[in-house]
Simulated assay, not measured.
Amino acid sequence: MGPEVLELEQQLAGFTGARHCISCANGTDALQMALRAREIGPGDAVIVPAFTFVAAAETVSLVGATPVFADVREEDFNLDPESIRPALAAARAAGLRPAGIIAVDLFGQPADYGRLEAIAEEEGLFLIADAAQSFGSALDGKRAGRFGHVTATSFFPSKPLGCYGDGGALFTDDDELAAILRSLRQHGQGEDRYDHQRVGINGRLDSIQAAVLLAKLETFGEEIVARQEVADEYGRALSAVAAVPVLRTGASSVWAQYTIRVLERDRVAAALKADGIPTAIHYPRPLHHQPAYAGSPIAATGLARSERLAGEVLSLPMHAYLDLATQDHIVASLHRAVGGTGLGRAASGYR
């Protein structure tokens, strides 16, 4: 909580346009703090996409609430608004009180917040925008950090804006919510360090990480542009042989991952590895198939898209400094692995 932390919070708030930025130790703490600030706990249900990193469901469980899994859309990997009400029905059938939604902006593009915010308003739900992978993106002229009741993000080193260890932040325009989040971050502190108004956590951001982020923020805008150029080249070069990600109208992405879809994924990944090209699978098993969440309710309409995506996604090298020669090598290798085998867009069922 040194002076670098306050400066970072001010700069991040200015970057996003949010009234408040509350830094914290990591993205998982950010999600947990958001849930605790609204006193979500035992007996409550929070809707979470089934196809995402475990932190979204984990934090719901850590506050004593129950994650209820909804499906995602194939075209952008994000929470499907059409799956929310079937998930709410499953929550109520299980005797739970629907309390919130965590919408994860998977791989860099914001979720459909226009529809999600409308559903949250109609149903009286607390909407958390998880921008751990989308910080720096925008939707309809608003940057990530301005969606939902509160936005949580991560500055883990692999993120588009990453520090040299763990770090995170929350963004909100709600003055009261911001004050509670600041208290929770420092052991529930009130008027002074020995006044504890609520049960909090040690969620402070390290000043060294804040200093790193301040330096990296200076070039972040340029890197967002460069990442888009890399994504554009991938899209042009790979659309004939794989299902490539699609941006919704009005949305931009920071391309935390460039994730395609292919059948026989393991064989394709092995062929790229033989050519010296690393790949990754985000994520090989949907959350409702994880042992820790096997008993959690799922949307009444099922989670077929989450299950299909988990078997097809493959993330390619992506960063702002990926040179064209290296990208050409990746593209050529993928064409050799996939071309003529029926593993591309039509075969995957992508639309």
Rank of each mutant, 00 (worst) to 15 (best):
I84C: 05
P160V: 07
A94R: 14
Y113D: 01
V60W: 06
F135D: 02
L161W: 12
A99D: 07
I119S: 00
A65V: 06
F156V: 06
L139A: 03
I102L: 04
I128P: 02
F147V: 07
D130G: 00
L125K: 01
G41N: 10
A144L: 08
K159E: 12
L106Y: 13
I40E: 12
L96M: 11
E123W: 05
V68I: 12
G145C: 00
V46G: 05
S61N: 02
A99K: 01
A94I: 09
G64Q: 12
R85N: 07
T151M: 09
A93P: 08
V72T: 09
I84F: 10
H149M: 12
D105C: 12
S137P: 04
F51A: 05
L88N: 01
E74S: 12
G114N: 12
E121I: 06
G64W: 15
K142E: 11
N78S: 14
A152C: 08
F77R: 04
V68Y: 04
C163I: 09
E117P: 01
R97A: 11
L88M: 13
A129V: 08
A70C: 10
S137D: 10
I102F: 04
P67Q: 07
D71N: 08
G100W: 10
L139M: 15
R115N: 14
Y113I: 03
Y164N: 15
G43T: 11
L106I: 15
P98A: 03
G124F: 09
F107T: 12
G148P: 01
F155K: 02
R146S: 04
V48Q: 08
P160A: 10
R115Q: 15
S158I: 12
C163R: 05
L116V: 05
A138P: 01
G162T: 14
A138W: 06
V54D: 14
D71F: 07
A65I: 06
E74V: 14
L161C: 09
E123Y: 00
L125T: 01
R143V: 06
K159Q: 15
L139E: 15
L125P: 01
F107E: 07
L161N: 07
G165R: 15
L127K: 00
A129C: 14
P67W: 13
I102Q: 04
